[in-house]
Amino acid sequence: MAYDKFNILTSTAVPLPIENVDTDQIIPARFLKATERKGFGDNLFRDWRYNQDNTPKEDFILNNPIYGGEILVGGKNFGSGSSREHAAWAVYDYGFRCVISSFFADIFRNNCLNIGVLPVQVSAEFLQKIFGEIEKDPKAKFEVNLPEQKVTILATGESESFDINTYKKGNMTNGFDDIDYLLNIKKDIQEFAENRPI
């Protein structure tokens, strides 16, 4: 599925300074019953966000109107657990275009890249600086510059560069996906398939 191109994002951020946020927290299994990619944002962090009677939990960050923006900042090992792409869909559908953490689980990172959410891995120190900045000023803005592979705390000008492979970067900045690429080399794949032993 094609998605919007990603270049430079300037936004406030929502902090979630918890480690090992797993995909069952991002979207619990009981909300995976849809057969279309719609509406998952409503159930993002469902059980942290709502009580069992569906009233909002006041102390959860997404229910605090002071915080908002298109960047989600999470603790180390963000997105561990299940392969459900619904987790990335929920993040996207809620309105986040970028997740910053000091470490991502593999499948979640891939899923994000495949649907147009940019996972930005920064050092543990820089992550703390970002959390610190939001704590000081919930309206603090950050710039995520994909072409330059750099994230900047605008108030202080401090920045750090991040890694992304050239291919995926190209996809994100152009809004392409892998299937477009693979369909272009279909003939090679067919030839390869014919020579498989099993």
Binding site: M1, S83, R84, E85, H86, A88, I107, N110, N111, N114, I115, D177, D178, I179, L182
Partner: peptide, 9 residues
Amino acid sequence: GIGTSEVEM
């Protein structure tokens, strides 16, 4: 394990 975009792929 893979995500749904990869299943499609």
